[in-house]
């Protein structure tokens, strides 16, 4: 099949590819955001304006609330807007439109309205962007019925999940971790490689402990699993890919096999996605747990600017190894 062709792309280029492919496929798809017509701060939308024109690739004023409001309205009227919020930290300014409008309209209109909106944004502590440009805020949106939350970890998933998100009739928050932008991987073309929302990927099979890792923590968890294997600890690494809908079945099946669960994300541990996954997993697999569920996340403090402190702030493979070792002793 011609669709099976693969090429090596960066995460960023995979995002661009997905946008291009979907815009070419469906004229309703449009892109809005600050500087998107010139490629955006990291180049994710580079070339789109040239190819599809500035009517479909719209530069907006620096006003997240206004951008989101426009996009919600466009979505209700039949367009499939992909809004770019430059840093997830700025999403606070668009919360009302996203949480009170986008997430509620389908429900409050008795199903008459649909909001096929994708909000692309990026997150993560890397490159000393400091406390207002580095947060991981995905957990906030898990608390809002009506919004799907997606966090890809590989270029293939970035493309595959973004295409699925654009074709979804619900608001989807599509969170890209900045540290992954220049990572490379094989990416498929055409209709191949679309990743349905709500399906986890088992990145490495294992028997002794399940490590659910989000986004950039997947590669850290895989590196940790390699080190743990040398000690005879077999870790299964699961990348949930989308947080809502969550593929609880895959996680629970794994926990029933390994009897131990660790959830790792870069976001602050307290109140994070780890708590939600832990809750759902223990409910689904309580009688199979042989140790308390553990989570690993950033400390409860703003992201430091200092490169040294920033490195210490983000969980890494060494921390995962140490936590798993502790978990095995529990």
């Amino acid at each position: 099949m011609p669709e099976a062709a693969q090429r090596e792309l960066t995460f960023l280029a995979a995002i661009t590819a997905a946008l291009k492919e979907e815009m070419a496929r469906d004229a309703a798809v449009m892109v809005l955001g600050e500087d998107v017509a010139v490629g955006g701060p990291f180049g994710a939308t580079r070339g789109l304006a040239e190819e599809f024109g500035t009517a479909r690739v719209v530069n907006t004023p620096i006003s997240e609330g206004a951008v989101m409001g426009v996009a919600v309205g466009a979505a209700v009227l039949g367009r499939r807007p992909v809004v770019e919020i430059m840093f997830i930290d700025f999403i606070t300014l668009a919360m009302d439109q996203l949480v009170n409008q986008a997430a509620k309209l389908h429900y409050m209109s008795g199903g008459q309205l649909r909001v096929p909106l994708v909000v692309r944004t990026q997150c993560g502590a890397t490159g000393s962007y400091a406390a207002q440009h580095s947060q991981c805020l995905e957990a906030w949106f898990l608390h809002v019925p009506g919004v799907k939350v997606v966090m890809p970890a590989t270029p293939a998933d970035a493309r595959g999940l973004l295409k699925a998100a654009i074709r979804d009739d619900n608001p989807v928050l599509f969170i890209e971790q900045r540290g992954l932008y220049w990572s490379k991987g094989a990416v498929e073309e055409g209709e191949a490689g679309i990743v349905p929302l709500g399906r986890a990927a088992i990145r490495r099979g294992g028997e002794d402990v399940t490590v659910v890792a989000l986004a950039s923590m997947v590669s850290e968890a895989l590196s940790a699993a390699g080190q743990l294997a040398e000690e005879g600890i077999s870790a299964e690494v699961i990348d949930p890919r989308s947080l809502h809908p969550l593929d609880l079945e895959t996680i629970a099946e794994s926990v029933k096999k390994t009897h131990r669960l660790l959830i790792v994300h870069e976001a602050v541990a307290q109140g994070g996605v780890g708590a939600e996954v832990a809750m759902q997993a223990q409910l689904a697999a309580f009688n199979y747990l042989d140790a308390p569920v553990r989570r690993l996340g950033a400390p409860f403090t703003p992201v430091p600017y200092s490169p040294v402190l920033e490195r210490g702030y983000v969980p890494n493979a060494a921390a995962i190894v140490a936590t798993v070792q502790q978990l095995m002793r529990e």
């Binding site: 690993l296 996340g297 409860f300 890494n316």
Partner: peptide, 22 residues
Amino acid sequence: PGADHAEAELSAAGSDGRAGRP
């Protein structure tokens, strides 16, 4: 004492507001 994130929980600003002294 242990790995930086082994306990995963650092409380930065307590109620006394002494941020930066986790």
